[in-house]
């Protein structure tokens, strides 16, 4: 990522930014609460446990990818190819299912495909030093193209029941395996980012990659690992999405990259790198997921939802800037 302002930040803005982020999460939580209350007024069935469990299914796969995407954006990179990685993983899962591979094999194939695709991104970006936005636009086209060429205009639907059951499997009543996995992943990501030296290194790289390198951090290897991790989780998301909808089409998960990046940015992760929390991202995931579900309850068309999400994103990025300007003006 090079298309952002590289001029040094004024000394106060970092801590001030952190304080704002903390307030940002409070704002997200309040909004989420409002959405929940609003939804329960819209539909008496909203707070029904079955319904809530159902609601989570619609955003869990995106949410899984939002976690590593947050780390990537913190170190000033981005991966636009995630939805195409999902398509490729889903394709290979489908071909394996047609060949009669068992459920553990299918899951492994999904994960490995994602891993390999992420490794390719990482090698091109971290290894060759190419800009991530161009590389992942390229692999977006490449992975989706492979899927389209292999599938043509057919769809793979021959999934064994044991595989599609993965999507509906519950670990405890009302909590699906998929959702529990997301919560566990979120906890691990939060712990690593906010509680370990690895997390501090990611912030250091995001705040100043050159200084980080001179401080002895292996910036390239870190980025390689992060891209590979993003691919791996896109593969995991593909396993669950394929199981949930029980079919693989060339346009599977099309456009999801934008929703995932929106989740991360709305969650308060700065696209300029070096700032953001997993808590914020998780709150944004729930906010967008619940708002989307609520609008679905009153039959708002999908495109209007994405319009509102776009508007929300613009407001979300403009307000802190306006506040900062106001504050700077006030300080004279």
């Amino acid at each position: 990522m090079t298309n952002f302002n590289l001029t040094p930040l004024p000394p106060y803005s970092f801590t001030w930014g952190l304080r704002l982020m903390r307030r940002w999460e409070v704002l997200l939580a309040v909004l989420l609460l409002l959405v929940m209350v609003g939804n329960s007024f819209l539909s008496p069935y909203f707070l029904d446990p079955y319904n809530l469990a159902d609601a989570t299914a619609n955003f869990t796969e995106k949410a899984m990818i939002a976690l590593p995407m947050a780390l990537l954006i913190i170190v000033r990179e981005i991966d636009i190819s995630v939805a195409s990685i999902m398509a490729l993983a889903s394709l290979l899962i489908g071909l394996a299912a047609e060949a009669g591979v068992g459920v553990p094999g299918l899951v492994a194939i999904g994960l490995l495909t994602g891993l390999a695709a992420g490794l390719l991104n990482g090698t091109l970006i971290a290894g060759l030093g190419l800009p991530s936005i161009v590389v992942t636009i390229g692999t977006l086209s490449l992975f989706r193209g492979i899927t389209a060429v292999v599938l043509g205009d057919r769809a793979i639907t021959a999934y064994p029941e044991a595989f599609t059951d993965l999507a509906t499997m519950k670990v405890i009543p009302f909590v699906s395996l998929e959702f529990a996995l997301f919560l566990a992943l979120a906890a691990v990501f939060a712990l690593v980012l906010h509680g370990t030296v690895i997390g501090r290194r990611l912030y250091a790289i995001g705040l100043n990659p050159t200084a980080a390198r001179f401080s002895g951090l292996n910036v390239r290897r870190t980025k390689l690992v992060l891209f590979t991790l993003t691919g791996l989780l896109a593969g995991l998301a593909a396993v669950f999405l394929t199981a949930r909808i029980g079919s693989t089409r060339p346009n599977i998960a099309s456009g999801w990259e934008l929703e995932i990046i929106t989740m991360v940015i709305l969650g308060g992760v700065s696209i300029a790198g070096g700032a953001g929390t997993i808590g914020g991202v998780v709150l944004a995931v729930f906010l967008l997921g619940m708002a989307g579900f609520g609008m679905g309850l009153v039959n708002v068309p999908g495109i209007v939802m994405s319009t509102l999400i776009g508007l929300l994103l613009l407001i979300a990025v403009a307000v802190p800037q306006l506040l900062a300007r106001f504050r700077r003006g006030g300080e004279g």
Partner: peptide
């Protein structure tokens, strides 16, 4: 948004992309 609010172009145009597409609808 880009020039006066210093918002990164990728964020602005990502958001306005869905906004303008929705406005078309």
């Amino acid at each position: 948004f880009v020039a006066w609010l210093n918002v990164p172009p990728i964020v602005v145009t990502l958001a306005s992309m869905s906004l303008y597409r929705g406005a078309t609808f």
